[in-house]
Simulated scan of single mutants.
Amino acid sequence: MQHLAIHLVVAVIAASIANILIPRRIPGRFLGLILTGLVGVWAGEIVFKVLKGYGVNNAVFHWGILGIPLIPSIVGSVIVLFVVTTLFHPRRYM
């Protein structure tokens, strides 16, 4: 249960930073922020593992909270936010 709470906190932080970096309206407001963050954390962890397999191993990628990497989570949330807002509101952002 504690690991899920840490994931939720990191997800909200990552999605909030992603929303600051890409100022777009997240569909679903706070629930959309949480979902964007959770998918971003998941995507960031996968990208981190793939990059680690190719030998990309920087100390910045290891910054995290209880095993959840922050920088890949933020990058994953930025990508998810971009894709979701482009799919739901294509004319607004093009």
Rank of each mutant, 00 (worst) to 15 (best):
G55S: 12
Y54I: 12
P90Y: 08
R91A: 10
R25I: 08
H89L: 06
G76R: 02
S77Q: 02
K52F: 14
F88L: 12
F82Y: 11
G55I: 12
F61T: 03
G55K: 15
M94Q: 09
G55Y: 13
T86W: 13
A18D: 08
A11M: 04
F30P: 01
I26Y: 03
L81I: 04
N58D: 15
F82D: 06
V84F: 07
L66I: 07
H7D: 08
G44T: 02
N58M: 13
I17P: 11
F48R: 12
I65W: 14
I79A: 10
F30N: 09
I13V: 14
I17W: 14
P90I: 06
E45G: 15
A18N: 05
R92H: 11
V39M: 10
G40R: 02
W42I: 03
P23H: 13
G37M: 06
P23S: 13
Y54T: 11
F48T: 01
W63T: 12
L66G: 01
L38V: 12
V47F: 10
G28F: 04
M1R: 08
L8Y: 00
A5V: 11
R24W: 08
P27E: 12
V12W: 03
I74A: 04
I34T: 04
A5G: 05
H3R: 12
G64K: 04
L81R: 00
A11T: 02
M94G: 06
V12P: 00
Y93G: 05
I74H: 06
V84M: 07
V50K: 09
L66F: 12
M94P: 00
H3W: 08
V78Q: 04
E45Q: 14
V80H: 00
H62A: 14
V80K: 00
Y93E: 13
V75T: 06
L8G: 04
G32L: 04
A43R: 01
L31D: 00
A59N: 14
M1V: 09
V84W: 11
L51H: 06
L21Y: 11
I20R: 14
G76F: 03
G64P: 07
I79T: 07
F30D: 07
V47Y: 03
I22A: 09
G76E: 02
W42K: 05
F30Y: 12
P23K: 15
G53F: 12
V75W: 07
V9P: 00
A11Q: 01
T36N: 15
S73I: 08
L81T: 05
Y93A: 06
W63K: 09
L66M: 10
A18H: 02
L31C: 00
V41R: 07
W63R: 05
Q2K: 15
H89V: 02
I22F: 12
I74F: 05
G28K: 06
P90E: 10
L35T: 02
L70V: 13
G44I: 04
A14K: 03
G37R: 10
V41G: 01
